[in-house]
Design a protein around this nucleic acid. Structure first.
Lengths: 334, 334
DNA sequence: GTGAAAGCGCTAACAT
DNA sequence: ATGTTAGCGCTTTCAC
């Protein structure tokens, strides 16, 4: 049971080198005779001999494995990205080691180090927090990295991101066109690039329309549904309420829906809502959500493509930031 | 940059053996003097020496990596399981290689083989289709495996599953208690254990209540939203309609919602709906869904625990099937 | 208390 | 057209 190249070599009376060449598909290149190739292939099949990828990796210094480091794989946004990354990876012959940072910088650092020690060929990361030294360290050790979603501009690391500034700006413009002037913004964890850009877009749209910004209407501080629920409830319980809200992520939109439902407020009548991300159920919510859809497929696919290019490059490729547009989908909530 | 044990050994004038013992945390057990341990630890830190897990794995024949093989990681049900598996795995010092079978038996076999060749210590799989020889093969090669969600009873492989028969039975009973006698069932891919059991539960509940089963009301054949949409639309366009429907998975429920919306039918007035799985947005859908909730946390956690036990066992542990109850959450749709 | 050496299962450079 | 050999970077047995 479970034979290796050596067993097969002994069995056929050839050297392990020959086995290696043939089973690695380099038989022709190494000018192994058709006959031996045939013999080896059939015997390998019959004995169930398959290469130990571990040994192969140790020798070749290539694992054909990449790491994917996201805050939470149960979050549909990251799950979708993982899906597309996995698809592209697989079709390019790569496997994916997935790890969650759980929104914690320390976990992210730890996980990154482990992934490096496992010698992944590259890393796709949706960074959390505002500390990036651990990523810089990995980059300096020669690990190809691509950032997705969130990004550190300070880093010399390629990124694939949505144009969050313009996405938020467009979302708020839409609300303004609908006649709203009292527009709140429910943000996630402050500090992250996504959050920053979206808030910036929110402010820009207000300014452009001459709508004054009220500090008390910039609420929130975490990306969880519960946080959104809590913060929106608090805000809607005040005497002076906004007539519209920009929720900066999918989970925050769900929290908002819950809060409105609890308080018996109608969306969009009492509060118009625009959110981010589109999922199969977004259209089936009550009310269906107006949203700025990011193309998770593009993000995942392009991220892997960029990573693969970096892995295969002989010299460090130029650092780019790929910015993808989001598009507005108007539904009942606004 | 990027020093290994040998460099460190040379630098400190000790042998690599000693470095290995200390950095693997076996310093005390190997009775290395406190002084040397200290010296090695500090130097390792300073030089950034960390073990190459690849080499370590090759030598110890343990990768501290498990494979997770699911049909589609973007499906919230599997994404949640992945989340809990990852959490437990990480806290036990394991990494997770994730692979999608895309509902294809061949891909599943291929992926399983690759995972084995990468020498994962164990595998958690949500099997697809009705062919299980590839899993049997892996088991015979000595790979510890745990099945989740779907299961092959014929295999001598531990499984963690929901009590699908009773879950469906309870769901249909609920509909019957609500006064329905014309109850349809929207199934997924026939043949899978999940589907079979749920359909069996549906039939049992009908029989127990003396409600005759109509073949034309057992519809469907794939787990996708689109399939659900299509099949339900077709059924609702007939002259004789059911008054209630059991949708056998989350995506099928969404498809049903879409169909009802398109046809301008009210749920639950025109059609009552009970579905499976509970997610943050399930309660926020229009209407909110009555559902049989499976405990994804238990499934993920128990699956990993069982796998870990099998990995650590010296002799093959007994094969068990862990059956978890689902619980009914009544909401607006029924 | 620590060093030396063999070897995990492959690949690749060098022979022939 | 194929064999031989020296590692890849660790762990572990056996010495001393």
């Amino acid at each position: 049971m479970n034979y290796d190249f050596k067993d097969l070599a002994k069995h056929l009376g050839v050297s392990v080198g020959t086995i290696s060449r043939v089973l690695a598909g380099r038989g022709d290149a190494a000018r192994i005779s058709k006959a031996t190739q045939e013999r080896i292939q059939t015997a390998a099949e019959k004995m169930g001999v398959q290469p130990n990828e571990l040994a192969r990796s140790l020798r070749t210094k290539k694992t054909r494995t990449i790491g994917l480091l996201v805050p939470d794989i149960a979050n549909p946004f990251f799950a979708s990205i993982a899906h597309y990354v996995e698809q592209r990876a697989r079709s390019a012959g790569y496997s994916v080691l997935i790890t969650e940072s759980q929104e914690l910088v320390e976990k992210e650092g730890e996980a990154g180090r482990l992934l490096f020690n496992r010698r992944v060929d590259g890393l796709i990361v949706a960074p959390v927090g505002d500390e990036s030294s651990h990523l810089e360290e990995l980059r300096l050790k020669g690990l190809p990295i691509v950032q997705v979603d969130r990004v550190f501009q300070s880093l010399q690391i390629t990124a694939v991101v949505t144009d969050n500034f313009n996405a938020a700006r467009q979302a708020v413009r839409h609300l303004i066109e609908r006649g709203h002037r009292q527009i709140a913004c429910l943000q996630g964890k402050a500090g992250g690039s996504v959050n920053q850009e979206r808030v910036r877009g929110y402010l820009a749209a207000l300014a452009e329309a001459g709508v004054p910004f009220k500090e008390k209407w910039l609420i929130g501080g975490s990306h969880s549904l519960e946080s959104g629920h809590f913060e929106v409830t608090k805000m809607l319980n005040q005497k002076s309420r906004p007539t519209a809200l920009l929720a900066i992520s999918n989970m925050l939109a769900l929290g908002t829906l819950k809060a409105a439902r609890d308080l018996n407020l109608q969306i969009p009548t009492d509060l118009a809502l625009v959110s981010f991300d589109d999922h199969p159920w977004t259209v089936l919510l009550s009310p269906s959500l107006t949203t700025m859809a990011q193309s998770v497929e593009d993000i995942g696919t392009l991220a892997f493509n960029e990573l693969l290019a970096a892995i295969q490059a002989t010299k460090p490729p130029s650092v780019k930031t790929i910015v993808l547009p989001a598009h507005l989908i108007v539904r009942e909530s606004s």
